[in-house]
């Protein structure tokens, strides 16, 4: 079993992977979601069922969980991504709650509301870090690629992007599918970390948290997302002794950030470009 500090680092890695998925969707493609915890749930339960009932090794199980979440997101995305703005957000709440309710009521397979116990504890610190580093590297490359630019075009001006010949519907569905893949993998790792699953772990509060950390870190900044996730995970974990007040602090923090720094911690900038900017400023001796 991992120690307490290791546990916090593992949890930060898992939350960051899921938040990167949401960041891709909300921060880079401009689709506001409140249901991505559902894809974590799909990944987590798939992993749990494959490892426990079918004796599959955990690695393919986690990846299959991610792929299943991705496939479901693709199917859900085709009709629902025609919706814009608040309508998709509220539809995503509905889908998220539906997935949770199905898991809760499909007792023969998911063991229902009492929870799924006794999953192998496979998510050690090296495993979580490896997944985190690989997926972060892929995401940074993805947003710099043609696909990343197409996502941003959909976000900045949906109409102009489609007039320029981008198949915006396709990119929106792709973005949702990739974000579901990330959340599914994060869910699988979460199953291996907690060794016990319950449908209420993936409720609206979890979905809200995923979107909140992305906004908190800065929409359109991947390093901001990771920084935001780290800070929020630390706040939630470190204030556990005063558990009555920690959710109050978390809620108040969200409101205060929106009032005083609505663009989030990083705005649209990445940490690396900020450091490079500082170096350049040093060379010329004056701010640029």
């Amino acid at each position: 079993m991992p120690t307490y500090i290791e546990g916090i680092i593992i949890l930060t890695c898992i939350n960051s992977i899921a938040a990167m998925g949401v960041s891709l969707l909300t921060g880079f493609t401009g689709i506001f979601t409140l249901g991505n915890a559902a894809y974590m749930a799909i990944g987590a339960y798939t992993t749990a069922i494959l490892t426990m009932k079918h004796n599959l090794h955990w690695l393919p199980s986690v990846i299959l969980g991610g792929l299943l979440a991705m496939a479901i997101a693709y199917l859900i995305g085709i009709p629902t991504l025609k919706l814009m703005g608040d309508y998709f957000a509220i539809a995503s709440i509905g889908l998220g709650e539906t997935v949770r309710l199905i898991i809760e009521n499909w007792e023969p397979v998911t063991r229902g509301a009492r929870g799924f116990p006794g999953i192998d504890s496979f998510t050690t610190l090296p495993v979580a870090l490896t997944f985190f580093i690989i997926l972060t590297w892929i995401t940074f490359n993805l947003i710099k690629s043609n696909y990343g630019r197409a996502f941003k075009a959909c976000r900045d001006d949906y109409l102009a992007a489609s007039l320029l010949g981008f198949n915006t519907a396709k990119y929106r569905i792709l973005s949702l599918s990739i974000s579901a893949l990330y959340c599914g993998i994060a869910g699988g790792l979460f199953a291996g970390f907690m060794t016990f699953l319950q449908p209420t772990m993936f409720d609206l509060q979890k979905s809200t948290e995923l979107t909140a950390v992305v906004v908190f870190g800065g929409l359109g900044s991947l390093s901001g997302t990771i920084l935001g996730t780290t800070i929020i995970t630390l706040i939630i974990e470190l204030f556990r002794p005063i558990s009555q007040y920690r959710m109050l602090i978390y809620g108040a923090a969200l409101v205060l950030v929106m009032i005083f720094r609505p663009e989030g911690l990083m705005g649209e900038k990445e940490i690396l470009s900020l450091i490079r900017g500082m170096g350049r400023r040093g060379e010329h001796g004056r701010p640029t």
């Binding site: 608040d86 957000a89 979107t211 909140a212 009555q244 959710m247 109050l248 809620g251 108040a252 929106m258």
Partner: peptide, 15 residues
């Protein structure tokens, strides 16, 4: 931003 702030307020009032 109002939407996120309203989620924050919902958590604040509940707790």
């Amino acid at each position: 931003y109002l939407l996120i702030a309203s989620m924050g307020m919902s958590i604040v009032i509940e707790n």
